[in-house]
Amino acid sequence: RELEAFAERFKQRRIKLGVTQADVGSALANLKIPGVGSLSQSTICRFESLTLSHNNMIALKPILQAWLEEAEGAQREKMNKP
C-alpha cells in the first residue's frame, strides 16, 4: 500500500514540477548516490504505473524520494529568490 501511495504521490509531484520521466532518469546520476547512475524513462514509467517487480520498487523508492526532495528544494529556492 505504501509503495502504491508513494508512486502516485511521486508522479503528481513530478508533473507539478514540470519534469519529464526522462529528465528524472538522467537527473538521478547527479545525486551521486553510490551504485546509482541514470535510469531509463521506461523504468520511471514502470515505477509510476506499478509494473516493476516489488523488489525493484522497494529498491527505487529511496532513490526517487531523494531526487524528489532535492528537486522540490531547488524549486523552493528558485521561488524565494527576488
Rank of each mutant, 00 (worst) to 15 (best):
R14D: 00
L52C: 03
L28T: 04
L64M: 03
I44E: 01
A7V: 12
S26Y: 15
D23V: 06
I33Q: 04
H54N: 08
R76D: 11
T20K: 15
P34R: 07
A74T: 11
Q21E: 10
K32G: 07
A59V: 13
H54Q: 11
P82W: 07
Q75S: 13
F10M: 02
C45E: 14
A59G: 07
I63H: 12
A7N: 02
E2L: 03
K61P: 00
H54P: 14
L28Q: 01
G35E: 09
R46D: 13
Q41S: 13
M57W: 04
V36L: 12
N55L: 11
L3A: 06
R1I: 14
Q41H: 15
W67Q: 01
I44A: 00
R1H: 03
K61G: 04
S38L: 07
W67A: 03
E8T: 08
A71E: 09
K11N: 03
T43G: 02
L50E: 04
A66N: 11
K61T: 06
R14A: 00
I15V: 11
L52Y: 01
Q21N: 02
K32H: 15
G35Y: 01
S40L: 04
S40Q: 08
L39H: 07
I63S: 05
L68S: 02
A71K: 15
P82A: 15
S38A: 05
A27T: 08
K81A: 15
C45A: 14
F47H: 00
Q12M: 10
S49A: 12
R76G: 12
E2K: 08
E2Q: 06
L60E: 02
E69K: 10
A74H: 11
G73W: 05
M79R: 10
I44V: 13
H54F: 11
E48T: 00
F47R: 00
L50S: 13
F47S: 01
L52T: 02
A71F: 04
S26E: 15
Q12G: 05
R13S: 13
A7W: 01
E4I: 15
A22H: 13
R14W: 00
N80P: 15
A71C: 06
S40V: 03
A5L: 14
G18M: 01
N56H: 12
S53G: 10
R76P: 12
V19S: 09
E69P: 02
P34Y: 03
E70A: 08
P62S: 04
Q65F: 07
I44F: 01
N56I: 09
K61I: 15
A27H: 08
D23R: 05
R9Y: 10
K11E: 02
R14G: 00
L31F: 11
V36R: 05
I63F: 13
V24L: 08
A66D: 13
W67P: 01
V19Q: 15
R1W: 06
L39F: 05
E70S: 12
N56V: 15
A59Q: 14
L39M: 13
I58S: 11
P34W: 03
L31D: 06
N55R: 14
K32T: 13
Q12K: 10
K11S: 07
L52F: 04
G18K: 06
K81V: 09
D23H: 06
G73F: 09
S49M: 07
W67R: 01
V36Q: 04
I15Y: 03
R46N: 14
Q65L: 08
I58Q: 10
A59W: 05
L3M: 10
L39S: 03
G18E: 03
S53R: 06
I58L: 10
P34L: 05
F6Y: 07
R9D: 07
V19L: 11
N56M: 15
L68C: 04
K11M: 07
S49P: 00
E8W: 04
V19T: 07
E72K: 02
K81I: 07
L17M: 08
P82K: 09
N56Q: 15
T43E: 05
K81R: 15
A7M: 03
G37W: 03
P34H: 06
F10G: 00
R9K: 06
V24F: 03
S38D: 06
M57T: 03
K32Y: 04
T20N: 04
K81D: 10
E2G: 07
K11I: 04
Q12A: 12
A29Y: 15
K32W: 05
L17W: 03
F47Q: 00
A22R: 07
I58G: 06
R14I: 00
G25C: 13
L28S: 01
S49E: 14
R13W: 03
F47Y: 04
V19R: 11
V24G: 00
A74K: 11
E69H: 08
A29P: 05
E77L: 09
K16V: 06
N30C: 03
I33H: 06
A71H: 06
P82F: 07
L28W: 02
D23F: 05
G37Q: 07
L28H: 03
E72V: 03
K78E: 14
A5K: 14
R46I: 00
